[in-house]
Design a protein around this nucleic acid. Sequence first.
DNA 1: ATGAAAGCGCTAACAG
DNA 2: CTGTTAGCGCTTTCAT
Lengths: 347, 347
Amino acid sequence: MERGKDITIYDIARDLNVSPSTISRALNDDPTVSKKTRKRVSDRAMEMGYRSNPFARNLRQQQSQTIGVIVYDLNCPSLTSVLSGIDKEAHAAGYGIIIMDSAQSLEKEISNVQSLFQRRVDGVIVFPAPGAKEPDHFAPFLDKNIPVIFLDRAINLSKTSSVVIDNVRCGYLATRHLIEQGCRRIAFISSPVGQEVYAQRYDGYCSALRESDLSFDESLLLIAAPTEEDSIAAARKLMRLNPVPDGLFATSDLTAAMCIRQLLDAGVRVPADIAVVGFNNDVLGKLIRPALTTVNYPGTEMGETAARNLVKHLKGQGNVGSISAVTVRAELIVRESSLKRDALRGK
Amino acid sequence: MERGKDITIYDIARDLNVSPSTISRALNDDPTVSKKTRKRVSDRAMEMGYRSNPFARNLRQQQSQTIGVIVYDLNCPSLTSVLSGIDKEAHAAGYGIIIMDSAQSLEKEISNVQSLFQRRVDGVIVFPAPGAKEPDHFAPFLDKNIPVIFLDRAINLSKTSSVVIDNVRCGYLATRHLIEQGCRRIAFISSPVGQEVYAQRYDGYCSALRESDLSFDESLLLIAAPTEEDSIAAARKLMRLNPVPDGLFATSDLTAAMCIRQLLDAGVRVPADIAVVGFNNDVLGKLIRPALTTVNYPGTEMGETAARNLVKHLKGQGNVGSISAVTVRAELIVRESSLKRDALRGK
DNA sequence: ATGAAAGCGCTAACAG
DNA sequence: CTGTTAGCGCTTTCAT
């Protein structure tokens, strides 16, 4: 209960018979204070168990040395790599991060934004909740020229920046790969739309079809949230299609994996009958048989890039105008689940 | 760049022709200020776009309203549920959380502890890095009576508290289940020791064997980190054992799943030839065939419990003495991978 | 029910 | 190179 009294720079000052400002300067490695005094001060500070008070410092300097991070669902395994990337870069630059979880709810996202605003973070990285249309709840930050970086969503708001992957291209690559494997009727299972990224992957899918003069069949488009139940339901629908597709591109590995499982259970061969490509490069893709062809989601790199960009803005405050949209490279990872050609030839 | 001037309570005070103290009191719902003024103040504050300055407040009150969270590896999917549990409870109680990643390194854990200490968090929740022997780096917190709660590790330091599962019991349950399924030579694949939890699961394993008068064979104990490579290597060793085991208990689902895959590839039947039980209840367990029997790791509940306990200490500052070790219940989830008996009977 | 005044610990002019 | 001084925005005695 008795938290013991904290040592302040005044204590050190008295102890060393110098002024508090000298202590302050010395502790901040200000070159105007002699090297000798600097050493003396920092040694004594250490001995006395001094720790600087960030509140006083922040109050004085009007900045928090903290970056706010809002994620749409902490409970989502693929986010950990992104967070770890952000954490790494932020700490390297001397910033702390404070993470808020929107738990899939736009309301919570809004309240998180306000909360971060209250806490006066110096910058924000946001993994937007699905369905967040126009993010006007960020206005307070933008008004104050506090940089906001969006992950996975290219926002056209001026003064914001974003880090994304080229979802159109990913969708295109995945689909073209299936076409190259001989697929002609390729189903597309998308996570619920409202999230821009899925629409973009769909665009890529369509353009690959078009390029190969394959007609687009509306019935081949299914929607399934990346959950067990939804994925199974989608797989059932898939098998009831007539004629049955010979290829499948799903926007989540979980869905792809669930579908493969259902297909195999039903006696459908993968990839011989239906070739499958997923999205994300989750570890589960390597576990299932056949191993899952997928698009690598470069989570760590996304996080690092976002944090690095943010820090850059924060340090060189000048270039807040030069806001950019960075695209991180994502590639197709080919494993067995899509190798229809080989599977058929092997027969 | 121009961050615009912030509204302070002085601005409101001037505007309303009252003193700053009244504003402060009103904003904090102090009953000594008349209900009417309270309303007037809060309305005007809202209109003027006032946001309180947490630094000034914290500086004054000597507390940060923040809980520090240290995890041994942010990049680990099973942690997300824990974090999400912590986040939920902490925010409900008006605390923010600040997450630090030790990235598997004890050094980083130590630096994180110092960093949180500098930032003057009001309490700490720690998921210890493996290999952290005696955690004396927490001494600064304990000296100041700042509560520290350990997850997954029962620490005998006085003044600390912990939230754990009964790993001995879990190991026992898993092993007994295998024995009940008719297994007589049960292999145990553990994640690298140094982490108390694995040793405990091993204890449980041994005691189940003992209970059934099964001899313990040293060669049945294998070590594998929960990575793809290690798990595959362990699976290979497993199959080279002579005689081959008829059961397997692995301390991670990933390892269990990898082993199942290797076994199936080698023509070994699961569960008929070897019954398998994993640990954690990762989603991948439901994806593989046969579906994985596992021990449910109640991540969300662990996180919630830890945060709730911490908050309790923080609010009723008195009972820092009454530190406890909470054990959260974890249960066996039986799926196909372990049902040897049925598999054999089915034949 | 409200006001006046002091101070939390630090930094940054300014002055020497 | 170092000291003096003022003030960041808020809370909190103490007075009224």
